[in-house]
Computed example of a mutant assay.
Amino acid sequence: MSRTVFDISLSLDGFVTAAPQTAEEPLGPGGMQLHDWLVDRDYLERAVAGLGAVVAGRTTYDHSIPGWGADGPSGGARRPVFVVTHEAPDEATVPDGGVYTFVTDGVESALDQARAVADGRTVTVMGGADLGRQCLAAGLVDEISLHVAPALFGSGTAMFAGLDVGHVQLELLEAVGTPETVHLRYRVVRPVA
């Protein structure tokens, strides 16, 4: 069975974007610092080694498609990406031969489709505080993987603001520090029934 990992980069004060966001700077001023850790190829390769499929939000897709191209966020590995959206984009704007499936009937449907093609490998929910909060609130996440950048944004898109899930116990699985970020990976501890 696939495990579902919510994976996101954020500032030390919990923002996944800085304010103000603009078309030129979708992550806000200095927001690209959140992804400086991607230069650590060894960590990145380890992180995606067992990846079977990705679930992303529409805003993440729209902002990232110029860099991702047809192959998606995992580059040449060409893993399927299920984009949760209210409306699929015009086909002319989607890269030919791309790995993208647009899911208009909710995050649970996107996760079901991703798990079906992941064939027991990891399904990663990435990009988008709103999508991550939806998955966490619905109890659909097995692990949380955070990449904490050494910055305080003060304002922007807060990752966990408004998340009404009560007390959720987490078990630390990994903590790796680098000059660019601290990688934290937690297992969501399910209550014993």
Rank of each mutant, 00 (worst) to 15 (best):
D130N: 12
M32F: 12
T22C: 00
R58D: 05
T181P: 11
H63E: 06
V99Y: 09
P95N: 03
P179L: 14
M126G: 09
D164R: 13
D36A: 14
T22A: 00
F153R: 06
F82L: 12
A18M: 04
D13F: 07
D164M: 08
V81K: 01
S2T: 05
W37S: 08
T157V: 13
L184F: 11
A77S: 11
G132E: 10
T181S: 15
T85A: 02
G75A: 09
T22I: 02
G97N: 05
D42P: 00
G75Q: 08
A118N: 01
A149F: 05
G132T: 06
Q33M: 13
V54W: 09
D62W: 06
L111E: 04
A19K: 10
G177P: 05
L51P: 02
G132V: 06
P191E: 09
R3G: 07
R78T: 08
F6Q: 07
A110M: 11
P29K: 08
V107D: 02
G132H: 08
P20N: 04
V141E: 12
V107A: 08
F102K: 00
H147Y: 07
G67M: 10
P179S: 13
A110E: 11
D142I: 15
Y100K: 03
A47R: 03
D71C: 01
D130V: 14
G97H: 09
R78P: 04
S145V: 01
E45A: 07
G127R: 08
E108K: 11
P150C: 07
G128P: 13
D112C: 02
E143V: 12
G166C: 09
A175F: 10
R187N: 06
H183K: 04
T124S: 13
L51Q: 03
V54K: 03
A129P: 05
G69N: 10
I144Y: 10
S155M: 07
R185F: 13
P179D: 15
G128N: 05
R190K: 14
P89R: 08
G120D: 02
G120S: 02
F15S: 03
V16R: 00
E24D: 09
V176F: 12
R79G: 02
V39A: 15
T59S: 00
I8P: 12
R185G: 13
V189Y: 00
A114E: 13
R133D: 06
A70I: 06
T104H: 08
A53L: 05
